[in-house]
Amino acid sequence: MPEAQNNDSGILIVGFGNTQRKDDGVGPYVVKKLSDMIKPLAGIRFMHVSQLTIEMVEDFYAADVLIFVDATVDRLENGWRCVKMMPDLSQANFQTHHLSPGFLLGLLQALYQHSPMAWLVAVQGEDFGFGHEITPDARTRAEGAMGKIIETVETIRKKE
C-alpha cells in the first residue's frame, strides 16, 4: 500500500473558497478566526485554500478528523449547516480546478485505506461579488458555525 509521508495527526480544519469574491471566502475566514481562538490546543491543524486539489490527500492522510468549511448559496434555516461527509468517488471525471470533499475522502480511502471522520460545515453567503470583505450577515452566520465546530472538536477530544 502506498504511504503518505505526513506525520501530523489529530484534527484538521480546512476552509476553502475564493477570498477575492466576498462571502465565497467565508471558509478561510472561519478557519483564520478559529486558529486564533483554539490555537493553544495541541493536535489541531488549520488550512485555508482557494480550492481543493488532488495533492491535498497527502495533507489529509494523517488526520483522524477532517472538518471542511465552505460557503454556500443555499438558503439555510440557521444560516449554516453541518453534515457528515462520506467518501464519494462519483465525481470521477475529474475537473482539476476544484474537487469536492467527498471525492478527496474517496481518494484517501482508495489510495491509503484511510477513512477519517469528516464533516462539511457550510455557511450561507449573501454576496459573491468582487471584494475581500465578508458581509455582516455572513459574519454572523460564521459565528454560529464556529460555535458548532468548537463544540464538535470538544466532543471529539473528550472521547479521546
Binding site: M1, P2, A4, Q5, I54, E55, V57, E58, L89, L107, A110, L111, Y112
Partner: peptide, 13 residues
C-alpha cells in the same frame, strides 16, 4: 486509482 494505486500515489506526490 483502483487499478494502479501506487502509480496514482506517486503522481499525486
Amino acid at each position: 486509482v483502483n487499478k494502479f494505486p501506487e502509480l496514482a500515489t506517486k503522481g499525486i506526490r
